[in-house]
Amino acid sequence: MGSGMEKFTADYLLLSFLSSWGVLLLVTARERLSGLLLLGPRLSQLAGVFLVVGTMIWFFASKPRNIPDTLAGLDGNQQAMLFLGGTAGALALLLLLSSLKNWSMAVGMPVQGMEALRHASYLRLVVGKLRLRWSFGKTRTKAPFSG
């Protein structure tokens, strides 16, 4: 029973990760968040739909899944935790890979929040912000002694 539950947990985590990845591909392409794109917008949407539908078919068709949580199934809290883990993993990987792919994108005008991802990659924005904070902090500490 123990290994059955572990297998089910692993399957659900994989389902959460891949289907979240699919949704992220789909929605970032639809919303034209170019800094997060790994493929062209059309291909990205297609890959997104394929991932969501494909992983659902795999999960539900590969084995019987109507199993109570008292046996090898998952209760609501376990599902929520695994889903959050899978989604966080998918988002982290997407941010990393898209940053590597789109590093050379121009940062352009300073825009607040997610809107900035229309023009620049994620890590480039974060690095830029950290640099700005660092230089701003240095000028602030120097100012009282400069004159």
């Binding site: 659900y12 389902l15 959460s16 289907s19 979240s20 949704v23 992220l24 789909l26 929605v27 970032t28 639809r30 919303e31 968040l33 969501v52 659902m56 999960f59 539900f60 899944r65 109507n66 949580d69 199934g73 998952l74 609501g76 599902q79 889903f83 989604t87 997610m114």
Partner: peptide, 21 residues
């Protein structure tokens, strides 16, 4: 009726909605 299909679909809808607009 499965414990997984609809809850997962709703959760994915929330993920998608967060990035939409």
């Amino acid at each position: 009726v499965s414990d997984y299909l609809v809850p997962l679909t709703l959760a994915l809808a929330l993920v998608g909605l967060w990035f939409s607009g």
